[in-house]
């Protein structure tokens, strides 16, 4: 992926999209293969996950933010605390600076009024935007999204997608697993189609949606469009 790109991953249910995404920040430990993000490279050739590899993964995760389908906000902390927690505890940012940045990020995702609320008092769209702010607070180079809008009603989904478009305009690098074909086609620089645990083809959205090369892609697109 190039810096500043927005890439969507599509494919039938169970084809390994989430698994692939989770391998990129080692929430899932791949058996073999190489992950390279922002200058940190980890190569696996099977065997036990070692202490050194965990340390390398820790360095790599510093560059990667992740947003989940079910938000996974920390329910025992306010929205503001959710956003501040990792910068303060992991990066040792002074609390004042972290708070200022967190408020700025919440403002950016349109949640400045919600800073003092607890997550379960927010709508789904608000929660997902708070989760994006939380990931951004660690100043990642890449954002990973695993079906960020699947749990949301269309109008709430739109709030989230518009935040992602704004980030794209600002030059954030984003990798999005999605079932939302309209978004994939309109917002992506490139679209990846996966099936059976592997990448079948990756192309410019206009080409992939209009003239897919692989029969499996064609079959999938026929079923969803």
């Amino acid at each position: 992926m190039a810096r500043g790109e927005l890439v969507s991953i599509i494919g039938p249910s169970g084809c390994g999209k989430s698994t692939f995404l989770r391998c990129l920040n080692f929430l899932e430990i791949p058996d073999s293969g190489t992950v390279e993000i922002a200058g940190v490279t980890i190569t696996r050739t099977g065997g036990r996950w070692t202490r050194q590899e965990e340390d390398a993964a820790h360095r790599l995760r510093a560059h990667v933010g992740m947003v989940f389908q079910s938000f996974n906000l920390f329910p025992h902390r306010t929205v503001l605390d959710n956003v501040m927690l990792a910068p303060v505890q992991v990066k040792r940012v002074p609390a004042d600076a972290a708070r200022a940045e967190a408020l700025a990020l919440l403002d950016k995702v349109g949640l400045s009024a919600m800073a003092g609320r607890y997550p379960d008092t927010l709508s789904g769209g608000q929660q997902q935007r708070a989760a994006i702010a939380r990931a951004l607070a660690m100043r990642p180079d890449v954002m990973l999204y695993d079906e960020p809008t699947s749990a949301l009603d269309p109008e709430l989904a739109e709030e989230v997608l518009s935040v992602m478009r704004t980030l794209d305009d600002e030059g954030m690098t984003q990798l999005v697993v999605t079932h939302d074909m309209r978004f994939a086609r309109a917002a992506s620089d490139r679209v990846v189609f996966m099936d059976g645990g592997e990448i079948v083809e990756a192309d410019d959205p206009d080409r992939l949606f209009v003239d897919p090369q692989d029969p499996r892609t064609r079959k999938f697109l026929r079923s969803v469009l």
């Binding site: 929430l27 995760r61 992740m66």
Partner: peptide, 13 residues
């Protein structure tokens, strides 16, 4: 929930 740990690890804790 398992997702809570994952979110924390993803935040590099």
């Amino acid at each position: 929930a398992r997702g809570q740990i994952e979110a924390a690890i993803a935040l590099n804790m």
